[in-house]
Design a protein around this nucleic acid. Structure first.
Length: 682
DNA sequence: GCGACTTTCCT
DNA sequence: GGAAAGTCG
């Protein structure tokens, strides 16, 4: 089937040689050229953060080493357009086939579709595989063939599928190298000099790379796993798997994790070890959440930027950059929150429990827009993962059908005594509180003066008073919710009266720009593509390793005068409606190929992203276009799933959305956007 | 062992 | 808010 030419194996977030179906297919087909394309500008505002790039750098080196020892190097390419780079690689190597593994974030869905389309039209055989999930999202449906809308139902179904997830594949024994002599490597600069210093400590704690991932997995299964149900909610103990960054980059196959863990479970079940059995269930559940994040992303590609429940769109977020800064710097006056934020700042890592605490505090107490928090996580987490983080923040924000109630505030004081009962975690990250007795460690504002004095604490001076009181936060939250429902009702009424135009551009439903003064993303008014490819962007927040010296950074709050203006620039782009060529005719009337592209940042990407989707998705074409099993298969718009539309915000626009910014961009508002299958081949 | 009550957890 | 699990008489 190889027909003489070699195969390109396109590595992305599957940086492993074991259980890698795309690589296996390439090896089976003959000579292989392995390629990794670094095109971060394609990610828009989700340009990978410093620690994430550090990880990637190590992981690529590791993969290159492994591939070389099997017979072929990893060719790295620096690009601003993955698809055209692929095409160049194909041409310069004379390849006739392209293999890659699926990804499910909205950007990849569109990019990969385009890659298939473009390369197929050049006569290249393109095949793609599932390597990232136990089951492809389109294979997990309810009795009516509809996607699930709650996690537990979804996961129950996954665990009771009639067929097991595929057994992991062994690594190839050797790889016949394709001719890459005319396809030189680009050097990827994934960290600059400044970042190197900040990154130096990371390698003490972490070992990226697929074989290290494998070791981490084995160590976890033979160690902490059995106690997982007991220990998993202690902030400070090394009882979690620490697999998440490995999983993010696909260094370890989730199917291998699943199989090994299941084997252990059977073993413990036979021993009658109930705790061990339960531990496996709980651990698998966290694997299930990762699956679910892809599932949600696939079925609702806007979930990283818009609440899945429509009414949350009307929540009056507190746009207060001072709060945001205090949260980032761990200066909120709530010890558990501050300890967590400083750990994140210093290490790029947070225990899952602490992520819940700090993000819940962010949304419920500070009432800052959840997407700011999500973006900060993206910039700082070692395991930053768009799908998982979007799911996490939506859960915390109460914007999922089965998420937390929005009106309930988690009290960091009580949470503190649950996950850090002895205050050790707080003392480690907040040295200024180190001498405070455990009795007060999670609520120093209640401590008697003499206790504080003895501990060397002066509240408001060397440790802040609570930035917002819980009681005040509760009151404000109730008021905000009342306002939200009023807005929602008003908007609903306006739509029913057909006067939605009249409501104008209410700021509540306008996406709120990520503050620009945080140095975590590209500087304002400077399109990404004009940035130097790397390096010169500043990550000041992350670069202050000294915790104690950081507090007195009294920077003036430049309240960004043009939040409204920058909203347009910061909103992540919207995937366009894409179809296969075979089905292009059916959907052509929807403007399947965009002719409008108002986002200066994505002009180079041409047709990949579309700011103004007004032309798309009239969704009249209810063509749930079934695809052939093999070859250039793509996600397409699917017909509206009317039974959801009452509950979910329509992915393009919320139910009851007023004529906001979004509304104007997406006048056809009542269809649930959905991607159908990007089927597995091979 | 059992029912009423309390606490914990929920993606 | 409601299920599930723990606790006490």
């Amino acid at each position: 089937m190889s027909g003489g030419g070699c195969s390109i194996v396109w590595f992305r977030r599957d940086l492993r040689v074991e259980d890698n179906p795309a690589l296996a297919a390439g090896v089976r087909a003959g000579a292989v050229v392995a390629v990794f394309i670094w095109a971060p500008e394609e990610e828009g505002q989700y340009y990978p953060g410093r620690v994430s790039r550090w990880w990637l750098k190590q992981s690529l080196a590791h993969l290159d080493f492994s591939l070389r020892s099997l017979g072929t190097p990893l060719i790295t390419k620096r690009s601003t357009n993955s698809v055209s780079s692929l095409l160049e690689v194909v041409k310069s190597t004379g390849a006739t086939q392209l293999f890659f593994n699926h990804l499910y974030d909205p950007l990849s869905l569109v990019r990969d579709h385009r890659a298939k389309e473009v390369l197929t039209s050049q006569g290249i055989t393109v095949r793609s595989f599932n390597s990232d999930l136990l089951y492809e999202p389109w294979d997990v449906n309810d009795a009516h063939g509809q996607p699930f809308t709650t996690f537990s139902a979804f996961w129950e179904r996954c665990l009771s599928m009639p067929y097991d997830p595929q057994a992991p594949l062994l690594p190839p024994k050797r790889i016949i190298p394709g001719d890459a002599s005319r396809c030189p490597c680009d050097t990827l600069v994934l960290e600059d000099e400044l970042e190197k210093a900040s990154n130096a400590l990371l390698s003490r704690a972490w070992s990226p790379g697929w074989s290290n991932a494998d070791k981490a997995l084995t160590a976890f299964i033979n160690g902490p796993l059995i106690e997982y149900s007991k220990n998993r909610r202690k902030a400070d103990s090394a009882t979690t798997s620490f697999l998440s960054p490995h999983l993010h980059f696909g260094e370890v196959s989730v199917r291998k994790v699943f199989h090994l863990v299941r084997i252990k479970q059977v073993f413990w079940a036979n021993e009658g070890n109930k705790a061990g059995e339960e531990s496996v269930n709980l651990f698998l559940k966290s694997i299930g959440l990762r699956e679910y994040s892809r599932y949600i992303s696939f079925n609702h590609p806007y979930s990283h930027e818009r609440p899945l429940l429509g009414h949350l769109k009307f929540f009056p977020w507190v746009v207060n950059e001072g709060y945001f800064k205090a949260w980032r710097q761990g200066r909120t006056g709530y010890p558990l929150v501050d300890a967590g934020m400083r750990e994140l700042w210093a290490t790029g890592w947070l225990h899952d429990r602490i992520r819940v605490v700090v993000s819940s505090f962010f949304v419920k107490v500070l009432q800052l827009p959840w997407r700011w928090g999500m973006k900060y996580f993206w910039d700082t987490l070692l395991d930053a993962d768009l799908e998982s983080d979007a799911l996490g923040w939506q859960y915390i924000s109460g914007t999922l059908p089965d998420g937390r109630e929005f009106d309930r505030i988690d009290n960091p004081q009580f949470e503190g005594y649950k996950c850090d009962p002895n205050g050790e975690y707080v003392r480690r990250w907040l040295p200024e509180l180190a001498r405070l007795p455990t009795e007060w460690i999670h609520h120093p504002w209640n401590a008697p003066e003499y206790v504080l004095q003895a501990a060397g604490i002066e509240l408001g001076s060397n440790y802040p008073l609570p930035i917002v009181g819980i009681d005040a936060a509760e009151v404000r939250l109730q008021e905000a919710l009342i306002q939200m429902w009023q807005q929602e009702a008003a908007s609903r009424a306006a739509i029913e009266n057909g006067t939605e135009e009249g409501l104008g551009d209410s700021s509540e439903s306008t996406p709120i720009a990520f503050p620009q003064d945080t140095h975590m993303e590209e500087r304002p008014a400077e399109p990404v593509r004009n940035n130097p490819p790397h390096g010169t962007r500043r990550y000041e927040d992350q670069m202050v390793p000294s915790i104690t010296s950081s507090h007195v950074r009294v920077e003036e709050e430049e309240t960004s005068s043009d939040l409204r203006n920058s909203a347009a620039d910061n909103r992540a782009e919207v995937p366009i409606n894409v179809t296969t060529q075979q089905n292009a005719r059916e959907t052509m009337n929807q403007g399947g190929l965009p002719n409008v592209n108002r986002n200066p940042r994505v002009q180079n990407n041409g047709t990949m992203w579309l700011r103004n989707a007004a032309e798309d998705s009239t969704a009249e074409s209810s063509s749930s276009t079934r695809r052939e099993r093999d070859g250039g298969v793509v996600p397409v718009w699917s017909p509206p799933a009317s039974n959801f539309s009452e509950q979910f915000v329509d992915d393009e626009n919320g139910i009851g959305a007023s004529s906001s910014y979004l509304q104007r961009q997406h006048p056809q508002s009542h269809q649930l956007m959905n991607w159908t299958r990007l089927p597995q081949t091979g």
